[in-house]
Design a protein around this nucleic acid. Sequence first.
DNA 1: TTGTCACTCTGGACTAGGTCAGATTGAGTC
DNA 2: GACTCAATCTGACCTAGTCCAGAGTGACAA
Lengths: 241, 241
Amino acid sequence: MQPPNRYGSQIARIRKALEEQIDQGLFRPGDKLPSERDLSVLFETTRITLKDALLALEAEGRIYCEDRRGWFVSPPRLLYNPQYRTHFHEMVTLQHRQASTRVLSAKSTLATPELCRDLSLPPLSPVIEIRRVRSVDGRVVKYVEHYLIASRFPGILDHDLSQSLTGLYKDTYGYTYGRARFEIYPTAARGMVAESLNLADSSPVLLIKRINYDQNGEILDCDHEYWRHDAVCVSIDSGTA
Amino acid sequence: MQPPNRYGSQIARIRKALEEQIDQGLFRPGDKLPSERDLSVLFETTRITLKDALLALEAEGRIYCEDRRGWFVSPPRLLYNPQYRTHFHEMVTLQHRQASTRVLSAKSTLATPELCRDLSLPPLSPVIEIRRVRSVDGRVVKYVEHYLIASRFPGILDHDLSQSLTGLYKDTYGYTYGRARFEIYPTAARGMVAESLNLADSSPVLLIKRINYDQNGEILDCDHEYWRHDAVCVSIDSGTA
DNA sequence: TTGTCACTCTGGACTAGGTCAGATTGAGTC
DNA sequence: GACTCAATCTGACCTAGTCCAGAGTGACAA
């Protein structure tokens, strides 16, 4: 074992070396780092120690990992203000970046007990479940599950669901957004969430649950948004509360 | 090596076993788990594999780790609505839990460039820097750095700073809160942040930066709040935006 | 042009240990 | 009762590998 040097530990030494390379612009956002194996040779350590250093940088949001593809330098976080429910594409474009959306599935199903509570529905109510992933500059950053109160959206499954739901709500059903309630907390990606975000199981994500009301204060739907934890900065402006 | 069994992997097997024990109430919030060594013997695996399972549960917020003390079962998350700047103690008490505050340091210093920008101050402006930690039910959950515009708070260092700053602002200076701006994102604890929260370096935390304005729309101060990532659920209610 | 299949590269999962330093504890002292 | 100090417990940090499965690539055949 190497004695602790002026960096305190191997992990800190490697972390700082990589941080410096990124800060100096030798690696640019989106660039791929060398493989864990190559880096462990380069830093004269084992893969486990090296991986601990990579995990530290990942926790900080400086780099991210794609399952079995490699480690990459994180682009700047997307500023996301959930209060203004502008189109995702519009928000991304305003930040001079490129957005895309892919529908994974869309179907009618029965609300879970948790959904019944969140949507104020009686037991066994039907809901429309839409799963989508959204990308910025080609990188998947968000996996969303939308749950729409079925009775309020007749025939919605026949529409193109890769477009903005906000626009569809307004143009087809005459609903505009009123207030909304959010819950935001860090958790881990599992199963389909991890898969859709190209993450390893149990990778950290930021979960944003929202319940959306229409212009008359009636519940419309709720979303479960799973963001790659390094890809977003939630930005909120409160009035006098 | 054991072949993948019906749980998919050792890590998943261990994670699910521990999850079940917690769900069944065999471990209660705040309880200490057996040591990593004991658990690795119990699950017939190595410490590294066992630790991966613990890290997965930590990422999810089910358990948390205190540096060199052990692993513990996470209590329910504290609901935190940053819009209502009620006293921390009041908020915690409303959720039937016990709050405490400890002042780490309080001094006058010069604003960093970042602070000058956030507080709209000219270069080299003096600010009051207050560092505190706040606990819920005896567990440290938040490390905060407050930066007050020095010219607006003459003599504040002579007051008891372990009390609510909101109250002090109002009673001593006649300031009440108006609007505020937040930025919320996951990052890693380093140095004093990690130390104060009893976390290992590079553990995940939720960072909430806020800039606070007074009743007249003038900037008062800004806070950098570092929350243990499993201890909080940010809850927000937006009006019609 | 398209599809497929073998090969390679990657991180994921896993074994089996050791050393180190901070935190805790308990016996003993004053 | 308070204080000290040594033993012990704990996670942090570290070595040195192996095997596996998914992702990507390039040659080649249909």
